[in-house]
Amino acid sequence: MHPYLPLSFADDLERNARWCPDHPAYVQGERRISHSQLLARGKRLGSALYKVGVRNQDRVGILAMNSIEYGEVIAATQWAGFILATVNFRLAAPEMAWIINDGAPRVLLFEAQYLDVIEQLRDELTSVETYVCIDGQADWAMSYEAFIATGDDAGPPCRAREDDIFCLIYTSGTTGRPKGCIWGHRELRQLVQVDAWLVDLQAPDRILIVMPMFHVGGLVLSLSQHVRGGTAHLYRQFEPEEIIRGIERDKLTVLLLAPTMVQMLLDHPAIAGADLSSVRTILYSAAPMPSPVLRRAIEVFDGCGFVNLFGQTEICMFCLSPLQHKPNGSEAERRQ
Score class of each variant (00 low, 15 high):
109 L>M: 14
335 R>P: 00
150 T>F: 00
68 I>H: 12
180 G>P: 11
186 R>V: 04
30 E>K: 13
306 F>P: 12
217 G>T: 12
290 P>Q: 10
329 G>W: 03
327 P>W: 08
66 N>G: 10
56 N>P: 00
236 R>H: 08
16 N>W: 03
208 L>C: 13
217 G>W: 02
263 Q>W: 05
186 R>I: 00
240 P>I: 04
203 A>Q: 15
266 L>I: 05
222 S>W: 00
235 Y>W: 11
241 E>L: 09
190 Q>S: 13
52 V>Y: 04
320 L>S: 12
207 I>E: 12
317 M>L: 15
272 A>M: 08
169 I>L: 15
75 A>M: 08
34 S>C: 02
30 E>R: 14
214 F>R: 06
250 D>V: 01
256 L>K: 00
43 K>D: 05
244 I>P: 05
255 L>R: 12
1 M>F: 10
215 H>R: 08
47 S>W: 06
158 C>A: 01
55 R>M: 07
209 I>K: 03
105 P>N: 05
224 S>Y: 07
69 E>W: 02
234 L>I: 05
1 M>Y: 11
210 V>I: 14
172 S>C: 06
240 P>R: 02
288 P>T: 09
146 A>T: 06
123 D>P: 00
294 L>V: 03
48 A>P: 08
38 L>N: 10
144 Y>M: 01
280 R>D: 02
270 A>V: 01
331 E>H: 09
323 L>V: 07
164 D>W: 04
125 L>V: 01
244 I>C: 04
213 M>R: 13
126 T>D: 08
227 V>E: 11
5 L>M: 13
178 P>Q: 10
196 A>L: 11
136 G>S: 01
92 A>R: 15
133 C>M: 01
259 P>K: 08
138 A>W: 01
89 F>P: 15
210 V>N: 12
159 R>G: 01
239 E>C: 00
25 A>S: 13
221 L>G: 01
56 N>F: 00
217 G>Q: 10
232 A>N: 07
65 M>D: 14
140 W>E: 01
212 P>R: 09
65 M>L: 14
168 L>T: 00
224 S>V: 04
321 S>T: 15
86 T>S: 14
75 A>I: 12
149 A>R: 02
47 S>F: 03
69 E>C: 03
16 N>P: 02
217 G>Y: 12
317 M>K: 09
79 W>G: 01
235 Y>R: 07
229 G>M: 07
118 I>F: 08
161 R>Q: 15
277 S>C: 01
245 R>M: 08
101 N>R: 15
234 L>D: 10
228 R>H: 09
104 A>E: 14
303 G>E: 05
5 L>Y: 13
288 P>M: 05
223 L>G: 04
262 V>F: 09
137 Q>C: 11
316 C>W: 02
60 V>Q: 06
243 I>C: 05
166 F>C: 12
335 R>Y: 09
16 N>H: 03
63 L>P: 11
198 L>G: 13
230 G>C: 04
176 G>L: 10
89 F>E: 14
305 G>D: 06
155 G>D: 02
198 L>M: 14
